[in-house]
Amino acid sequence: MSVVTSLLRLWRPMILWFAAILVAVEVVAVAAISAAGPVRFSFWLVVAGAAALYWPLVAGILLVSMFFRIFMANGMTRHEFLRGMALFALGVTVVFPAVVVVGHAVESVVLGLAGHRAESYPVFRFGEAAAEYFHLLPATAGFVTSGILITAGFYRFRPWIGVLLIAPGSLPGLAGNGLIEVDDSGQLTARLPYAVALTVVAVAVVLGCVATHRLLRDVAVKRSAT
């Protein structure tokens, strides 16, 4: 079985629990909010939009700290693990924003059918789905890259060097979230022309991937998580 397939099997329970909690929180919170009157904002964009940043960050941290030595101990090479981790991170980057967009669509339709949408609610429109997706994707990519890179720094070096590397390691995430975002009112924002902002984020992510490769390609397998 490949590294990425094994990672998916290992993560499946975590993903299912996380999804269940996210959906439960959404249902309970939106029901409570709509009981007080028409809903003025997308709760899903607030919760899942934030999760699309921080869950990939945590996933990136865990990929290195929890799983690197397990795969090494089971006969994988560092490069095989890095490839599998890259594919898994790519999957997170591609799927998570899609989940946010689909969830927004479902929330919008359900509230519309129930007549609980206020004027200010960011109504989901199929024509804008792609734009919403591509405004979420850069930040997700940036955060998962930062999670992996920062943890790789701690894994490779002593803790105080790892601390020093947090700043450069967080650049992909900061670039992704700082330049392109979707807020809870559904507003799509790019602080530079979108193509330029996307290019900056892409460069930061690629540099983060290269740095991760340099850090882990011949790192000693430690006894502890970091």
């Binding site: 929890m66 030595r69 397990i70 101990a73 006969g75 994988m76 090479t77 397998v221 006894r223």
Partner: peptide, 21 residues
């Protein structure tokens, strides 16, 4: 041996501290 998939696959190294979470 280093980073050789065939060699890695045919080696198991059990340390006194387990490589498990």
């Amino acid at each position: 041996a280093f980073e050789n998939p065939r060699v890695m696959r045919s080696t198991v190294f059990v340390r006194d501290t387990l490589d498990l979470n």
